[in-house]
Amino acid sequence: MIRLSATKKLSGTEGPFELSVDLSFPPESLVTLYGKSGSGKTTLLRILAGLEKPESGYIEVHGKVWFDSTAKVNLPPQKRKVGLVFQDYALFPTMTIRENLQFAQEKKEPQKINVLLELTGLDELRERYPSSLSGGQQQRVALARAIIREPEILLLDEPLSALDQHTRNMLQDEILKFHKRFGLTTILVSHDKQEVFKLSDTVAVIDRGKISRHGTPLEVFLNRNTSNKFSFVSTILSIRKVDCIFLAVMGAGNEIVEVVLSKSDIETLKVGDEVLVASKAFNPIVIKL
């Protein structure tokens, strides 16, 4: 189990508030911290990584205590086996891609570097410097660098928010692939609902330092369980009337879909709404999120 409880006073843009969080989840799961910017998500990751110290709290990862304010335990970041991926990649600019990975290793294992470079499709770029890579490629390197030392927990701080939708989709797949293949325990910070639905086992919603809900994405965002045949989150781009029905154009990731809406739907939905489109049998159900 991973247990994380922490309190710390933060000064947000809307005045000071207290981060007060108590969260536990099983190993090999992917947990998303979801919330507005400035709600304390990143601080929580930094506390977990040992880069910031909470006023009080307790952190236990796979049976090892990393932080315990009552017993005065506080492992430095170097002693916590975390893989940290930043929004702006934080690759070492003076090292080549291969050197970036090599730096992350405790003992030299060139074979492992080769495997990871191959897995991420970066093999041909191995002797290039980070500045000559695209954002998506840089983030792949950052991911590989975080994974190469077999972290006990992988921390992703809005890793994809600076990327375009297409690259983002590809990297989401890649994160899932790595998460499963290496049996990682992963915490992802995100404010993108599509990303949350696609990647996470559970999602914890953070609002001004407190966890307001924690559960599967469906439970959290719909407050109930549905047994949908298919479902996706999308945004309504336009609604138009065609004869006696209404047609809504929706954007879901890269895809544009058209969905038939009934007259009763129209009353609650408007352009720009984020909705869940789900289907049990024939007509899709459109639920406002």
Binding site: A49, L51, P76, P77, Q78, L84, D88, A90, F103, R149
Partner: peptide
């Protein structure tokens, strides 16, 4: 970020 990335990679 660069220093923090390095610390979290176990470097002093």
């Amino acid at each position: 970020n660069l220093s923090e990335a390095s610390y979290s990679l176990g470097k002093s």
